[in-house]
Design a protein around this nucleic acid. Sequence first.
DNA 1: CATTACCCCACTAATTAAGTAGGATACGCA
DNA 2: TGCGTATCCTACTTAATTAGTGGGGTAATG
Lengths: 137, 137
Amino acid sequence: MLSKKTKYGIKALTYLARLEHKLPVQIAIISESENISLKFLERILLTLRKNGILGSKKGKGGGYYLLKDPSEIQMTVVMRILEGPISMVPCVSLNFYEKCADCPDENLCAVHTLMTQLRDSSLQIFRNTTLADLCGK
Amino acid sequence: MLSKKTKYGIKALTYLARLEHKLPVQIAIISESENISLKFLERILLTLRKNGILGSKKGKGGGYYLLKDPSEIQMTVVMRILEGPISMVPCVSLNFYEKCADCPDENLCAVHTLMTQLRDSSLQIFRNTTLADLCGK
DNA sequence: CATTACCCCACTAATTAAGTAGGATACGCA
DNA sequence: TGCGTATCCTACTTAATTAGTGGGGTAATG
């Protein structure tokens, strides 16, 4: 299952990407428009900022804004920040690899084989999709 | 993340598929060979039996066995039984569809768009992969 | 009829998800 | 300089799920 965190994060990003301007938008505005709990969204946007996707401005006229053009924001990056590894098992993960304790030989492991295929196709989709693609722009 | 339940289930199925014979195999044998907790595996094999993948026999010489040829067991079926919906969000699921409470229009939803693509590619992999493919036979 | 091996329910511990609460910090403007 | 605005950040809570464990029941075999 996709976590609400990721779901809300993607929705917030597309909200920003659909705007004509690049001015900061308050959390409260996004929260209302997209029906997301304000405090929860606050945390999500914070992690997106800490990971270089969003910029922020404090005080009056402040808020969050995209740091790059939507067409330059790959979904692989967003997914890894919000949801974690693309792979469904650590022994197949490119960025978070970990050997299975119970598995003597990965090459003979059916789960490994299947999950490698799945990871590859997921990666291909996430790599070929940018925020711009999801906005219908 | 893939649940251990699914992981163990697939490993147990491939164990059975790799055998030459079709005689019943005791849970304890599979449990030891594949390093899976016996009681946990018991429950997993039970659900696979209830869903028509495995047959079982009680008493001496009893155990579990595949009901079909490995080449006729699609991974879509196995995954849905053990892991649940293929889709990562209910609003994209074919078999377990549910509308999002917060989303006014699915066609404009970025999450919906992205997750539909992901579901399609996952489905394609699971449909084109049978137990036989995972055994290296 | 005793042994074997699956059947099945109930319980538990650990982890994660999804928020909530409340204050600290920084910015802009008068 | 001081007030209001809006992000920053830590800690807490609640519910659900995962990964088991325990223990007795049932059916088949010899």
